[in-house]
Design a protein around this nucleic acid. Structure first.
Length: 501
RNA sequence: GGCGGCGUACCCAAGUGGACCAAGGGGACGGAUUGCAAAUCCGUUAUUCAUGGGUUCGAAUCCCAUCGCCGCCUCCA
């Protein structure tokens, strides 16, 4: 049926047809790097990373751009407070952000352009707009004249007149219309030299909005296919991007506008500038969360809900999601132990399933294939990762059931082991499209040394002897005491295994 | 005030006109399995989708109204 995407511009789901057949250009608004990034900044990249994975899987060659806004009022203020240069602050925050994204499995970003490195392109756009009479210079500032754009605010579906009067008169009387926004801001005397760039209008720096227009058109051309970001950016940021870009180049800007729901905490939007949220913010800083929870769990939490819905981010919710995730890890552990195949090995494809079919396993294989189809259906439907994960949760018991029924763990039907292994490979090929279970999870503690393993072997062997002699008081004591140390024993058909709880 | 969205079981959540009189996860309860556990499997947990009207042969899904919550209109992923 093909991919369908909800387009904010048209307010409905549309069949996805790229501007250029077979190729997709995708631009997502990245952070302004002035303070440590929080969980909300990771949501977009995780979602669009998954979008790219799915588009790629469906045969498109995707180019994905995420910008870094490293010149901005807030950076200047923050750098001053910290007593360091603006570029140093930006670099530090950016670096931490990239480390976090990497841990979260965001790998698909092709370009991460910085505003400070695209001043020439920005100035060029300003000049074009001035030449077209769509922008004007005022005291060293350059403003976009919103009246030059007939369908201004078409993305947010507002009317210029409906905007509350007077709220945007901060810049004083230098604007022709209160709604006009800055393309270029003249430098103020006390601003550090690293944010003072030469321009035809004197020293200054870019306004907000313009860098996204300049950089997206540079890396993706115009029009390009998908423009994404948090839904709080629809107005004014994305409306303004559209206005300046379309007036500048006389052609459509972006075809599909995708907006992700905002992360919430205690039902409130997660926001650095909200004073009430400020106290809680350190709990929601990415680097902190990543010490508290496995990155894979955070990614899983984000993808468990459809991207347009807000996510309530709480310890309770994460703990519940973790239990679900664990059932996957246990299945993988089990399949590895029983079949000897590595579930985390790459190169898995659904085709593995259609290896030698016997009547006995045909139903099972068909079942997996049907689930794979449902998974694809969900992903095609506006990247419904929540629904897709629901399908994965049905596959796990199906494989466990097969293992149980065919008594594979107890050593029966050895010839069916490859079938079970292939089913897990199939499952893994689906989770891989969500960026999940791509590699073996790191050991839960740093003490994963061989000594612990050896000691556990000794304890398990001693306990086995006790059980053989039916000395259950003793064997249960070993198990209980290990339990209080956070170690769980499982007596399996093939012997006892242990894991940390 | 304007614009946008949301309200599905105890909690999270998919489904947005019939093929589903509602997936899936967590929790709870019962069963199988086990020496007992753990893990795994099976089953139960919404005659109903905020409320009230309407459209339709048919609605959780469309329309209107009401209530509640959230986002944007200032910086924000």
């Amino acid at each position: 049926m093909g991919i369908r995407i909800y387009n904010t511009l048209t307010q409905r789901k549309e069949p996805f047809e790229p501007v250029n057949p077979g190729r997709v250009g995708m631009y997502v608004c990245g952070p302004t790097v002035y303070k440590p990034s929080h969980i909300g900044h990771a949501v977009g990249p995780i979602i669009f990373d998954t979008v790219k994975r799915w588009l790629t899987h469906q045969g498109y060659a995707v180019t994905w751009v995420v910008n870094i806004t490293d010149v901005d009022d807030k950076l200047i203020v923050e750098a001053k407070a910290q007593g360091c240069p603006v570029d140093e602050l930006a670099e530090r925050v950016t670096k931490n952000y990239l480390v976090a994204l990497d841990q979260l499995g965001v790998r698909g970003i092709d370009h991460m352009p910085k505003a400070s490195e695209h001043i020439a392109e920005i100035i060029d756009m300003c000049q074009r707009l001035i030449a077209k009479n769509a922008a004007y210079v005022s005291h060293g500032d350059v403003y976009f004249d919103v009246s030059s754009c007939r369908d201004y605010l078409k993305l947010s579906h507002r009317k210029v007149d409906d905007q509350q009067a007077g709220t945007r008169q901060l810049a004083g009387g230098e604007k022709r219309n209160p709604g006009d926004f800055a393309l270029w801001k003249a430098a103020k005397p006390d601003e550090p030299p690293e944010v003072q760039f030469d321009s035809p209008w004197g020293k200054g720096r870019p306004g907000w909005h313009i860098e996204c227009s300049a950089m997206s058109s540079k890396y993706l051309g115009q029009p390009f296919d998908i423009h994404g970001g948090g839904e709080d950016l629809i107005f004014p940021h994305h409306d303004n991007e559209i206005a300046q870009s379309e007036v500048c180049f006389d052609r459509p800007f972006a075809k599909y506008w995708m907006h992700n729901g905002l992360t919430r905490f205690n039902t409130k939007k997660v926001s650095k500038s909200d004073p009430e949220m400020a106290k809680l913010m350190q709990q929601l800083v990415l680097s902190h969360l990543l010490t508290k929870y496995p990155a894979e769990l955070l990614r899983f939490v984000v993808l468990s809900t459809h991207y347009r819905r807000p996510i309530e981010f709480s310890d309770e919710e994460i703990a519940a999601k973790k239990k679900g995730l664990d059932s996957f890890y246990r299945l993988f552990e089990r399949i590895e132990r029983v079949t000897g195949s590595d579930p985390y090995a790459g190169g898995a494809t659904l085709d593995n399933l259609f290896a030698p079919v016997t009547v006995r396993v045909e139903t099972f294989q068909k079942l997996i294939a049907e689930h794979a189809a449902r998974f694809a259906e969900a992903m095609d439907d506006d990247f419904n990762t929540g629904g897709a994960i629901g399908v994965l949760f049905e596959i796990v018991p199906a494989i466990n059931r097969f293992l149980d029924e065919q008594q594979l763990e107890a050593g029966g039907n050895v010839e069916l082991k490859p079938v079970a292994a292939a089913a897990v490979q199939s499952l893994r090929s689906m989770t891989g499209l969500l960026g999940l279970f791509e590699k073996r999870p790191p050991a839960e503690t740093s003490m994963a040394d061989t000594m612990v393993d050896s000691l556990m072997d000794v304890l398990i062997r001693v306990r086995a002897e006790a059980r053989k002699a039916k000395q259950y008081t003793l064997s249960d004591m070993v198990r209980d005491q290990l339990g209080s140390l956070g170690i769980v024993l499982e007596d399996r058909p093939g012997g006892t295994i242990w894991r940390r709880s």
